[in-house]
C-alpha cells in the first residue's frame, strides 16, 4: 500500500514537473530511403538534420517568420521547439537538393506538406504526405501539385505583397484551387508551402550565422 502511494506520488510529481513541449519531430518522411530516391532519382544518399526555431533564433526568429508569412504561427502545429527534419540529398559527395516537410493545420485536420528543392531553393517536387479532405484526390493530383514546380520563396513574397500589380506578377497567383468546396484547404496549402520555403531559407541563413 505504501509503495503504491509512493508510486502515485512520483507519477503525479513527474506529471506536474513535466515541461510542456510539442511533438519531438514536426514532420519526417514516412519512408526516407524510398522518398529520396523517388524525388531525386540519381541520389546515392542523404544527411538528416533536425532543426527548430527555438534553437536557431527563438522568439525573434519566429517574429521574422510571422512577418514574412503575414500570420502568427499556430501554437500547436508550429510551436517553436518542434524539430523540422531536413534531408540534404547527395549524389556521391555532391549536394544535389533538399527535402523538407512541415505540418499545417487544414480544415479537417493536420496536413503534412513535403517539398523537394534544388540548390537555388526552387521547388522540384511537392506532395502531401498526409491530407484529410473530402477532395484529397484533387489536391494530390499531379495537375495541381505540379504547378508548384519552379516556385521560390521570392514568388510567395511577391504573392504576399500589398500591391495588386505585384501579386498578379507572382506565378503563385496563377495556381488554381483544384477543389470545389475546400477553399480553406487550398489556402492552407499555399500557406504551408510558403512557410516551408521560408523555413528552408531562414534555417540555412541562421546556420551560416552560427
Amino acid at each position: 500500500m505504501r509503495r503504491t502511494a509512493v508510486a502515485t506520488a512520483v507519477v503525479l510529481a513527474a506529471l506536474a514537473l513535466a515541461r510542456p513541449a510539442s511533438c519531438a519531430v514536426g514532420c519526417t518522411l514516412n519512408d526516407p530511403d524510398r522518398d529520396i530516391r523517388r524525388l531525386f532519382p540519381g541520389a546515392t544518399g542523404y544527411r538528416t538534420e533536425f532543426v527548430s526555431i527555438a534553437e536557431r533564433g527563438g522568439r525573434p526568429l519566429a517574429a521574422r517568420i510571422e512577418t514574412r508569412l503575414g500570420e502568427p504561427l499556430d501554437p500547436v502545429y508550429e510551436a517553436l521547439d518542434v524539430s523540422y527534419a531536413y534531408y540534404t540529398v547527395l549524389k556521391g559527395n555532391a549536394v544535389v537538393g533538399f527535402v523538407h516537410g512541415v505540418n499545417q493545420k487544414g480544415r479537417y485536420g493536420g496536413m503534412q506538406l513535403i517539398l523537394a528543392t534544388d540548390l537555388r531553393g526552387a521547388v522540384v517536387g511537392f506532395y502531401y504526405q498526409k491530407l484529410t479532405s473530402p477532395e484529397a484526390k484533387r489536391f494530390r493530383s499531379e495537375a495541381f501539385t505540379g504547378q508548384f514546380k519552379g516556385l521560390t520563396v521570392a514568388d510567395f513574397d511577391l504573392y504576399r505583397s500589398a500591391s495588386a500589380e505585384e501579386r498578379a506578377r507572382s506565378p503563385v497567383s496563377r495556381i488554381k484551387d483544384p477543389s470545389e468546396r475546400s477553399a480553406d484547404d487550398f489556402r492552407a496549402t499555399l500557406r504551408g508551402v510558403m512557410k516551408n520555403l521560408i523555413l528552408l531559407e531562414v534555417f540555412g541563413t541562421t546556420k551560416q550565422d552560427d
Binding site: V11, G45, Y46, R47, G92
Partner: peptide
C-alpha cells in the same frame, strides 16, 4: 504501465550521407 522514460535518437553522417 505507469512510467517515466526517454528516447534518444542519434544520426551519424559523413560526406556520403547518414
Amino acid at each position: 504501465t505507469n512510467a517515466v522514460g526517454f528516447e534518444y535518437l542519434v544520426r551519424l553522417s559523413g560526406e556520403r550521407g547518414d
